[in-house]
Amino acid sequence: MISKTPLCYTIGYGNRTLEEFISLLQINKITHLIDIRRYPNSWMEHFDKELLQRILPKNRISYMHCTGVGGMRESAYYEYMETEEFNHSFSRLVDLIMEVNGTDGYPVLMCAEKSPKNCHRRYLAQNLERSGIKIIHLTEPGQTDFSSFS
């Protein structure tokens, strides 16, 4: 039996409307959104955790929050990645991604920054790729990026 390579998308909401954001998720058949913000609130209220928890399931997308891999740390993110807290949270994230893939679902990691080049999710993507998970960055409708920007 041939097993498929686990897959995970990433996305940043940037300055998108909620409708644009959900459309981009649906076009890419996303089934599970994993919020990787340390603080799941936004100056754009429609991207606050509480609203996403209500709206996404109405669009057949599950919402999960994985705070331990979030950015906005006292030290540089790559330094935080050396901590036990990060390693524990990262293992939990990998388990979530594998679980979603095991049900033929499609997970996406969400943060605020539209471009993964300017976001901590680029570091997560590099680690996930080292763990054998293929990463696809959703940037604009019809546009994806397979690079982790190493």
Rank of each mutant, 00 (worst) to 15 (best):
Y63N: 04
V69M: 07
L52F: 02
G68M: 04
Q26P: 03
I22C: 13
F47S: 09
L24G: 04
F47Y: 15
K29D: 00
M64F: 11
I36K: 01
E45D: 15
D35W: 00
D48Y: 15
R60A: 11
G68W: 09
K49D: 09
M72V: 13
T31L: 02
E45R: 15
R38P: 05
E50D: 14
M44G: 02
I34L: 06
I61N: 00
F47G: 10
N59A: 13
S23Y: 00
M72Y: 15
R54P: 05
D48R: 14
G71Q: 11
L56T: 02
W43N: 11
V69N: 06
D35A: 05
L51K: 15
S62H: 03
I34Y: 03
L56W: 07
D48L: 08
L24P: 05
H32V: 07
R54H: 14
I36N: 05
K49V: 02
V69H: 08
E50R: 12
W43S: 14
S23R: 09
Q53G: 13
W43V: 12
L52T: 03
L56E: 05
K49N: 11
G70K: 05
Q53R: 15
S23A: 12
V69P: 08
M44C: 04
M64W: 09
T67I: 05
S62M: 06
K29A: 04
I22R: 11
L52C: 02
L25F: 11
Y39I: 12
C66P: 00
E45N: 15
K29E: 01
P40I: 07
S42C: 08
G71M: 06
C66F: 03
P57T: 02
D48K: 14
G71F: 10
L56R: 04
R54D: 15
Y63P: 03
E45G: 15
V69C: 09
S42E: 02
S62W: 01
N59S: 12
E45P: 14
I36W: 02
N59E: 14
D48E: 14
D48S: 14
T31D: 01
